[in-house]
Design a protein around this nucleic acid. Structure first.
Lengths: 187, 187
DNA sequence: AATTTCCGATACGTTGACGTATCGTTACGA
DNA sequence: TCGTAACGATACGTCAACGTATCGGAAATT
């Protein structure tokens, strides 16, 4: 009996990468399976063989490449940990395999419940550790007291995404410390 | 000779409103002229008669309804003026004729140069007075010195948009003062 | 009242993607 | 080596929107 034909995993990878690239280029509404097949150099029957709908394909692509999105939050002062997280988010937002898909996902999340579900889950997973570190820093007196960690966190993340989505620039990861100082005060 | 047939302006208004509603519902990529015509209760020939492409229709719709987006920045302390602006932006983002179109526009701006151009211009027009007021407040000592007004402004706006786009909530306009305090410090 | 023009409706052929099915070919496991 | 599974290519009918053209009727101007 066959254990697992390596051709399956191989074409799976090619197709998922092509799907992300296609999503970033044409957006959610204009995303077509035929284009993904052409881009991947694959017969479209191969795609239909593995995914029933375009949503399943897109969701699978994000699940698959999501691993690397983890920040190291184990060592250092709250400010140091926060700076590492902020820098990491800024890097992902400005340049990663996901970066170009953000507008498409925002649009998709506003239409398709499935996209909404997994996109907001990803966002929450990225947001929570950041808020926790801010709360920890306030408790230890590293940051100014009397502020809502969730609100401060949203201001920091918001600045990064706003730059990417509403202006022509991206947020320079080297300005992570400055952004933190602006919102949470000097050390 | 006919000066101006009022039927033109009447159907124009109906079509532009329908276009915004349609854009908010289906997004940029899935936006079709036939649907706009059906929604407006209008023959599609009427739309093609006035706009050659869907981009022209969308751009025209935004130009037309953009008037009301002006904040009063004439009186009061910098902090009071800033709070008025922030509250106003929060209201527009959470509930206005444009509100539901924001995801579609972000997506459209990433694909079509024309959408990119006018959307980013609108954003800049909303952003600049806010940054100016922050700079004024720093100069007068109302806000803490040593911060970049543009960065602080982006953090404030970013918080509002982030809430709307990356979480399930909107930003409560009544928290405008708290948001300003979080980023710029207490009075 | 006469005339112009703008309207909604409808029909048209074209295009592109849908999802299914078939068929040799190729690469794998036994 | 042999059988099988996954592949690519391709053809198929369906459907929705495209953009154009035509038409009678309603509403405006004169």
């Amino acid at each position: 009996m066959m254990r697992e034909d390596p051709r399956i995993e191989r074409s799976r990878q090619v197709i998922l990468r092509a799907a992300l690239a296609e999503l970033g280029e044409v957006g959610y509404g204009a995303f077509t399976i035929e284009s993904v097949a052409a881009r991947a150099g694959v017969g479209k029957s191969t795609i239909y063989r593995h995914w029933r709908e375009k949503i399943a394909l897109i969701a699978d692509a994000f699940q698959t490449f999501h691993e690397e999105e983890l920040s190291d939050v184990s060592t250092g002062s709250p400010r140091e940990k926060l700076e590492r997280i902020v820098r990491h988010v800024a890097e992902i937002v400005s340049d990663s395999i996901f970066s170009k898909c953000i507008p498409a996902l925002i649009d998709g999340a506003a239409r398709a419940p499935e996209v909404h579900a997994f996109y907001h889950r990803f966002q929450a997973e990225a947001r929570q550790p950041l808020i926790d570190v801010i709360a920890e820093g306030i408790a230890l007196g590293d940051f100014r007291a009397g502020i809502d960690p969730a609100l401060a966190g949203v201001a920091i993340l918001g600045a990064i995404f706003y730059r990417r989505l509403m202006t022509n620039e991206t947020f320079d990861p080297d300005r992570a410390a400055e952004l933190i100082e602006t919102v949470l005060g000097k050390p």
